[in-house]
Amino acid sequence: MSTLEIRDLHASVGNKKILHGVNLKISSGEVHAVMGPNGAGKSTLSAVVLGRKGYSISSGSVLLDGVEMLGLPTWQRAVAGLHLVLQYPTEVPGVMLNDVLSEALKGRGRDGDIARLDTLLKTEAARIHFDEKFLERPLNVDLSGGEKKRNETLQLSILKPLFVILDELDSGLDVDALRDCARRVMDATEQDGLGALVITHYSRVLAELRPSKIHILVKGRIVETGGPELADVLERDGYAAFTPEETVEEASTSDPMGLNLFP
């Protein structure tokens, strides 16, 4: 049993403070959702946990089984067991999927999986209806939005991290692709004990990825944590219900936050 714990995390981009003390704890096999409106800090949270450049962290901790991840380079966090499924997977011209996975597995000392990587790729590709011809393409190059997310899910299934952050998995996904990707993630939580942190704006994805806990992130703080029923509240009332009082007025004039989120 592993745990990923985010403690009092404060982070900024340039002079702008985005995260104002985020607390969250997730264990193996669990699915948690972090939901929030635009600008709440959702993408910042995923970037900071993986150590992307361009963010400064003023205080807090990201602990994987009690080991501090902040300060480690991104690749070491990944090798330690953290994984990020990107909202917009990057195209890397000329770099082949199997080369990247070989190197990634090498860093984890999984020589056996390197030896049978071709078989693994084909098996996992079939499981999520990812056309085998895409295995021969450079990473994400000329893939549709749906194929890119299948490709991300494929990598997740081969690398088998302890925890994955799924950043807006549903953006750009049609219903079929969303179901394929989400079911593969759910299988991994049940079979491999994967812990999944689902970062999302909309509740649509939660019909497939069934979280046991939902955290509402507004203006860089988790303002509410509850069970799946929170999604229903959001569906009905929007984020306005969770917006801190002193900011409601501002939100209603400058930014229609919480309105028309679920048309």
Partner: peptide, 9 residues
């Protein structure tokens, strides 16, 4: 970043 986030040094 993309490659490093897969665990490639």
């Amino acid at each position: 970043f993309y490659l490093e986030s897969r665990g490639v040094n």
